[in-house]
Amino acid sequence: MKNLRWNNFLFQLVAFLLALAFTSLIMVFAGAPPISAYVEILGGAFGSVNSLANVVVVWMPLLLVTSGLLITFTAGLWNIGIEGQITLGAIFTTAALRLLQESSLPPWLIILLAMLAGVAGGALWAVMAGLLKTFGGVNEIFGGLGLNFVATALTLWLIFGPWKRPGTGSMSGTEPFPDTLWLPQLPGLRLSPWSVIFGAAAIYLVYRLLSGTYFGLRLKAIGKNVRAAFLLGVPAWQHSLLAFALCGFFAGLAGALQVTAVYHRLIPSISSGYGFLGLLVAMLVNYQALWAAPVALFFAALNIGSIQLPIMLNLDSSLSGVLQGMLVLFVLLTEGARKRWLQKNG
């Protein structure tokens, strides 16, 4: 058993090194010095309190999204529609804030209601994908993909249509909300302590839910063999829908945070790609909720760190995406290799 764990760790390490090596190779082809690029990324992510705070600003929504995805993954569902669910969370939050900002309600209540609206929006979009699958026979990958496009179109329509800034709509988004409607932030930083509370609570709750409750066990059974789960008395489609709803709940919360804690308005790419990034994290941690926190932190650090690259080395910041993608590919690859190796030598 102990040997197996070592063996697993060794393969993961090899995957990480391979991902680094291949990304370096790409940099060499692009004419950039890999070592200084990595140094820049590290410095950009952890070099100052400010950059560290920015890493956390990315880390928390990513953790929320990953928490949600762990639920759907466990139930055997590929919730590709996660991007749209974040976006709908942001749209609903913005709508609630716009609706209530002129009212006499205290700001904290307005923010609370707006966040609840966001959560509902995310859950609604997720349940749509679930209903399409359960009653329409549409695979959740296709349904989710379609709903993502609808969500993006809806955002653009709102920004350039009904919610456009006074004068003319622009890609910079809707009119920012007054800072009374912002979630409280740490002095001098973009980071709100509420994000940290939500992120930490989400991953802990999901960890408990999946490893210690009958609900989690039933989801796992559905994910492993839906037919057997049904025959053993698990209400299968109801649980699938609930898994979608819960995932949408967390995605919607991430979207709500993007509006209330980060951008303070609706912008065209409000999800910041955290949905797809969350899918990568969830795949990488392979159902183990506790690992989601460090892996999401690493991904967040890569994202923030690579912002420096265009300035310092004239490289595109999408390099972090290359490294993240490589990492997932190599981890999956070495996992396959490890299984083969175990079959031969185990």
Partner: peptide
């Protein structure tokens, strides 16, 4: 293996799943 049992789950998990749920949390 196709209909009766869920490959990837342990015997303990199967017994918990098929038995009566005692509350919300599992007593492993």
């Amino acid at each position: 293996l196709e209909e009766g049992l869920a490959p990837g789950m342990t015997l303990t998990e199967h017994f918990l799943l098929a038995g009566e749920a005692r509350g919300f949390n599992i007593d492993w």
